[in-house]
Design a protein around this nucleic acid. Structure first.
Length: 883
RNA sequence: GCCCGCGUGGUGAAAUGGUAGACACAUGAGACUUAAAAUCUCCCGAUCGCAAGGUCGUGCCGGUUCAAGUCCGGCCGCGGGCACCA
């Protein structure tokens, strides 16, 4: 065994694993299965450090579970549809399909040298017709099951690019590409009835014990359950057919504070009034501006008095004006509200603007009834004194009063208690080319007709161009024009494609039978589902994970997944980002200029602060071939002159091309090997937290692995008959390492597992034990490191006489007897301060321990004659003497 | 505005209510070397002390407890999610 040169071993071991088909997932009914999945990548072009961290984490779990005897499924694929491919075609020419598959080829080749234990035979891309054809089949099944429908919806429309924009693509009210002002447009779109499942998706969150609490809370907030009263306002002087309209409120206890009613600009009553040009003009005004959060926040609250009045449901003598208001949403509740300015900030603003009365319903307990200068909105659990309404003069909390108000109204025949959800139906139509075509046909006679299943997949045509704005499918006559599947007459294919979130909502199920002629295979799904461990970024906490949970239910309803798979991910882990410093200088106008890490010289400490300089500033003719020693003096000289230009170092920033702080994993693998990259991203920081990539850290990792390598070589050269004294101690240390590393991996505390491996390595390198014990210890070390550093582990394993492949060796088990210490060191506290320490047999009775403790000279010294009031002995832990 | 989470050395971080800072990075000192690199050894929270050792110390204030980084209450700061949701 010579020097540690990763390049010489890594590709060989990868070939050995491939040859032995070690990572092929096998449906073995006699073994428990384990399905570990990392969120599959978008083929953007190159892999980045975030991928390395994500897939290494999954790989550690996969390799560990395999060593434990599980039949492991660890697949990989590509989330391959989406806009970047079209943008690339528009900007650089070429075809989205070619761009995508080229990227996939590059990234697959970049992933191979990482040595991941992936079953590549199951690989697919969502843009493969074999995949999206099955997705179309499921769409038809779900349509037949009533889970899909069409309706009009307001969207952000870019009039130049002629396409719908997602909210994220609207910047300052303008299209991100075209820079044209975005319009709100009503389009007929396809929707999934996810709202039907709102209650179930919320309730089932409680069962997801192995999901991060944070993600469950985020989903619960997103689903947004509320309980309230829905009732009808009887109208006065309204058009025919509008004798009444429904409103919804979560604060029915404030009903006596009503001073107006307001309806959405999209409300049927508003539309009925639009024959009045003034109303029509107001509605048009409401439609201006985007639907983004930003646009809404800055938008002024405006209203239009319709002249219509409604009667207060609790007191018919009170008449309230009806406004059309731009802040009332049609798709939440009933699209109409009652305004209670005294106890709602927004209503207060509105009432003040339009000079409406502001009657109070309650005041803070103990407060006097004074006119309000701002809305008084107590917490639901805050006690208040009711002035008017259902509670009389009682002091009550909002929660109790709300419940009382609902039952009071119900008993009087005014409305009913209703549960509402914020979650809206999932709009999946995209006016885009590079997505899964929606398999329906529009026929003049038959209407919307589902495509026949035998015609699937409806494949995307290749002969399209992106030189004109809009969806190329719309102007592709031979693809667009087709025969009606029902009557055979000429008809028009749906040219919208599906939201790419559809593609990622079921790929985990497809991996269980990637080549099946149906979307899934019942026997395979039964064996492999659910995903036992899912790993990915927190950015998918809501949309992807919620859609997948819904889609699994929809697949179950249409017979594509067993009932046990309606929650497809048993355990979820959300990993942090890999960050890196940003190096910034400023140009003459003070604008930031970013620099690549390799442009920046090592930092020099001058006095109390660190200074970083650009190589180019220190060596105007370039660094050339200067050695590290040759640069240090010029660097020091440069750094010591504060007149010089220095680089501002901004730590812990997300890696991004524009900030030039991206570290290419390929460079790291070239320089140090995959094992170093893998070990580094798993060490130091807890996996859920961000980890900062530092070149010093990477080098230190490489040095450590080199030390392990050298240690292994040294043990390999020990004479076979060497007898040492430390056998028992080393056996104990080995058992302890096995227990602690296992515990670390089990609990996703990879940083702690690695800390324990450092500790064990240090112990082993200082040990003087017999050759057999040393060899056993180093083989165990190789096994424990194997999930993180699989290549090096194989080399050590083989060199030390391990049988077969380390990757296939059973995970070591610690002998419990070796984990129990004979003696323990007990610190002694006196009044809570540590004063002494005693070593006693581990099984010594408490009474004996007390005796020894009280006889200890240090204890006697610190007690200084004071009487002992109490002595607490925590066995194996600590002794506290209270005086 | 509402809902979460987090504040520990120069840095990344450990710590079932039981010895705060494991493990590692950086810095410093030393060994080896003609020299450098590499490698190895030691120190490394603050403060007082020659030392032994003492005192203080987990954002701030208070509480519970024999014992609090950890539990409870109130502040301050940072981060994340949601938001015309009636």
């Amino acid at each position: 065994m010579s020097r540690y040169v990763p390049k010489e071993i890594e590709s060989n071991w990868q070939a050995a694993w491939d040859q032995a088909a070690v990572f092929t997932a096998r449906h073995d009914p006699n073994r428990p299965k384990y399905y570990v999945l990392e969120m599959f990548p978008y083929p953007s072009g190159r892999i980045h450090m975030g991928h390395v961290r994500n897939y290494t984490m999954g790989d550690v779990v996969a390799r560990y579970k395999a060593a434990q005897g599980f039949s492991v499924l660890h697949p990989m694929g590509w989330d391959a549809f989406g806009m970047p491919a079209e943008n690339a075609a528009m900007e650089r020419g070429g075809h989205p399909k070619d761009w995508t598959y080229d990227n996939i080829a590059v990234m697959r080749e970049q992933m191979r040298p990482l040595g991941l234990s992936i079953d590549w035979s199951r690989e697919f891309a969502t843009c493969d017709p074999e995949y999206y054809g099955q997705q179309q089949a499921m769409f038809l099944d779900m349509m037949a099951a009533g889970l899909v429908y069409r309706k009009n919806a307001v969207v952000n429309w870019d009039p130049v690019d002629m396409t719908v924009l997602a909210n994220e693509q609207v910047i300052d009210g303008k299209g991100w590409r075209s820079n044209a002002p975005v319009e709100r447009r009503e389009l007929t779109q396809w929707f999934f009835k996810i709202s039907d499942y709102a209650g179930e998706l919320l309730a089932a969150l409680d069962g997801l014990k192995d999901w991060p609490e944070k993600v469950r809370i985020m989903q619960a907030n997103w689903i947004g359950k509320s309980r309230g009263l829905q009732f009808a306002f009887q109208t006065v002087a309204a058009p025919a057919g509008f004798d009444a309209f429904e409103v919804y409120t979560t604060r029915p206890d404030t009903l006596m504070g009503a001073s107006f009613a307001a309806i959405s600009a999209d409300h049927p009553l508003a539309k009925a009034l639009a024959s009045d040009p003034k109303v029509a003009a107001f509605l048009a005004e409401c439609r201006l501006g985007g639907t983004t959060a930003e646009a809404l926040e800055t938008a002024e609250k405006i209203g239009f008095d319709t002249g219509i009045r409604v009667r207060h449901p609790l007191d018919a003598s009170i008449e309230l004006p009806v406004y059309i208001a731009n802040f009332v949403l049609m798709d939440y509740g009933t699209g109409a509200i009652f305004g209670c300015p005294a106890h709602d900030i927004r209503d207060f603003e509105f009432a003040t603007k339009y000079g409406l009365p502001i009657p109070s319903v309650f005041v803070a307990d103990g407060a006097t009834d004074e006119p309000l200068t701002e809305a008084y909105v107590p917490m639901k659990s805050e006690p208040v004194r009711y002035l008017r309404g259902f509670s009389g003069e009682n002091v009550q909390t909002g929660e109790a009063a709300i419940a009382a108000a609902i039952s009071h109204c119900e008993s009087m025949g005014i409305g009913r208690g209703v549960t509402n959800y914020r979650l809206r139906d999932w709009g999946i139509s995209r006016q885009r080319y590079w997505g899964c075509p929606i398999p329906v046909v529009h026929c003049a006679d038959c209407g919307v007709v589902a495509e026949k299943k035998e015609n699937l997949p409806i494949e995307l045509p290749y002969d399209v161009t992106f030189d004109i704005p809009g969806n190329p499918l719309d102007r592709h006559p031979t693809w667009r024009d087709c025969a009606c599947p029902s009557c055979g007459k000429p008809a028009r294919r749906e040219t919208d494609t599906m939201d790419t979130f559809m593609d990622s909502s079921w790929y985990y199920a497809r991996f269980t039978a990637p080549h099946a002629k149906t979307p899934t295979d019942a026997a395979e799904a039964e064996y492999w589902m659910n995903v036992d461990q899912y790993i990915g970024g927190i950015e998918h906490a809501i949309l992807h994970l919620l859609y997948s949970r819904f889609f699994a239910r929809a697949m179950n309803k249409t017979g594509h997944l067993p009932a046990k798979a309606i929650e497809p991910f048993n355990a979820l882990f959300t990993q942090g980002m890999v960050t890196h410093e940003i190096y910034q200088t400023r140009d003459d106008k003070g604008r930031p200029v970013y620099h690549l890490p390799e442009e920046v010289a090592e930092r020099i400490q001058i006095g109390s602060h660190m200074r970083a300089a650009l190589w180019a500033d220190v060596f105007p003719d370039g660094r050339g071939e200067r050695s590290d020693a040759e640069v240090i003096t010029p660097l020091l000289e440069y750094a010591s002159n504060p007149e010089n230009r220095f680089v501002e170092v901004i730590p812990s920033a997300k890696m991004s091309k524009s900030k030039k702080n991206v570290v290419d994993p390929m460079n790291i693998i070239d320089a140090f090997g995959a094992d170093t990259a893998r070990w580094f991203v798993m060490s130091d920081s807890p996996p859920e937290r961000d980890v900062e990539w530092t070149s010093a850290g990477a080098e230190a990792t490489f040095k450590h692995l080199s030390r392990v390598w050298a240690l292994c070589a040294r043990i390999g050269e020990m004479p076979a008959d060497h007898i040492g004294e430390g056998d028992d101690a080393l056996m104990r240390a080995t058992a302890k390492a096995v227990a602690e590393v296992t515990q670390g991996i089990e609990s996703f505390a990879f940083n702690k597992a690695i800390a324990k491996l450092y500790e064990f390595t240090n112990t082993l390198s200082r040990a003087n034990a017999s050759t057999a014990t040393m060899k056993h210890a180093v083989r165990t070390l190789a096994q424990l490191m194997c999930p993180m550093t699989p290549h090096m582990s194989e080399s050590i394993w083989t060199y030390q006489g391990g049988a077969g492949l380390c990757a296939q060796a059973p995970w070591p088990v610690a002998d419990p007897a070796l984990l129990i210490a004979d003696t323990v060191i007990l610190p002694i506290q006196i009044n809570g301060k540590r004063r002494a320490e005693i070593t006693v047999p581990a099984d010594l009775p408490i009474a004996e321990v007390e005796k020894i403790a009280l006889a200890d000279p240090d204890v006697i010294k610190f007690l200084a004659g004071a009487a002992v009031k109490k002595i607490i002995v925590v066995p194996g832990r600590i002794i506290n003497v209270v005086a």
